[in-house]
């Protein structure tokens, strides 16, 4: 199908975009890469009166290290994340994740800001920024707000953004000494949205987790920072401890049932990913056998 008629405004600056959003309120939609907005409009799931195209705003593009944070502009495309030496050095989790986001032609236009604002619970980047303890920078006519990634996602396609605000950047603490990362997902086909996935960040010292953040996706209505991780920090990991963490994890998940998987299957796969993740991050393959078979 084709999109219903709408008016189009090419924003000339962030300030101009915010003026347009203030003038049109809920009847306006922001257009970045269009890789989620256009399908939704073509399927006529939504029909905005006006589309505010921010795609040309250079001030929202680019990746830079400022002190101990990696700042990624909202319009930075998936393809840019994949090719960025700064991302590879300071947040390799994002690079690993992006190879699973859609397909090359879509990665050439889709943006990180669009992906986070869209907030599909099966999407990779939201879970990554939760695992990376990032901050989302949002601008409205009243000024700037900074929102912790863990507070940003509110439900399926729902975020803390109001319809008159723009997501302008993501700030990610640069990887600390001893940081390691894990990314894996189950999908029917490479590039499809995940059935279940896990993006993790850990600090390992003397064979133990000094820190562990597990960002699961496609297991509920938003990316989940699993509290089961806490039971694994600063303790010697045994198969029994890991099995217990897997049980805790299953109880905090609320996975949906759909054509791809039942909720029981999603719970099972999440446990498998947890075990694999811990075994991989600690370089202890024996842990991957024995639990959650």
């Amino acid at each position: 199908m084709k999109a219903a008629a709408f008016a189009y405004a090419r924003a000339t600056s962030v300030v101009n975009a915010l003026e347009l959003l203030a003038a049109h309120g809920d009847r306006a939609k922001v257009l970045s890469g269009g890789q989620s907005l256009m399908p939704t409009m073509n399927l006529r799931l939504i029909s905005p009166d006006i589309v505010v195209d921010i795609g040309g705003l250079r001030e929202l593009r680019g990746i830079a290290v400022k002190g101990d944070v990696l700042v990624i502009g909202a319009l930075t495309r998936h393809a840019d994340l994949l090719n960025s030496p700064e991302v590879a050095a300071h947040a390799p989790l994002l690079r690993d994740a992006v190879t699973h986001v859609a397909h090359p032609a879509i990665r050439n236009r889709g943006t990180i800001g669009g992906s986070l604002a869209h907030a599909d619970p099966a999407s990779e980047l939201p879970a990554c920024i939760v695992a990376l303890d990032a901050t989302i920078v949002v601008r409205g006519s009243g000024g700037e707000r900074r929102i912790a990634a863990t507070e940003f996602f509110k439900g399926i396609y729902e975020t803390a953004l109001s319809s008159q605000e723009l997501l302008v950047a993501v700030e990610i603490p640069v990887a600390a000494e001893g940081s390691t990362f894990f990314f894996q997902e189950y999908a029917r086909r490479h590039g499809d949205y995940a059935i279940v996935g896990l993006a993790a960040h850990a600090v390992v010292r003397d064979g133990m987790f000094a820190d562990l953040r597990l960002g699961f996706f496609a297991v509920g209505d938003r990316p989940l920072l699993a509290s089961a991780a806490r039971t694994l920090v600063d303790v010697a990991i045994t198969s029994a401890a890991l099995a217990e963490a897997a049980v805790t994890l299953a109880s905090e998940l609320d996975p949906q049932e759909d054509q791809q998987a039942s909720s029981a299957m999603r719970r099972h796969l999440a446990k498998v990913l947890l075990v694999r993740c811990v075994a991989t991050l600690l370089s202890r393959p024996e842990l991957a056998t024995g639990v959650a078979r």
Partner: peptide, 18 residues
């Protein structure tokens, strides 16, 4: 699929005005 400025994209998800 077409190329825009040398890069492949979906022309069904790109507006002519873009």
């Amino acid at each position: 699929t077409v190329r825009i400025d040398g890069e492949i994209v979906r022309s069904c998800l790109t507006l002519a005005v873009q």
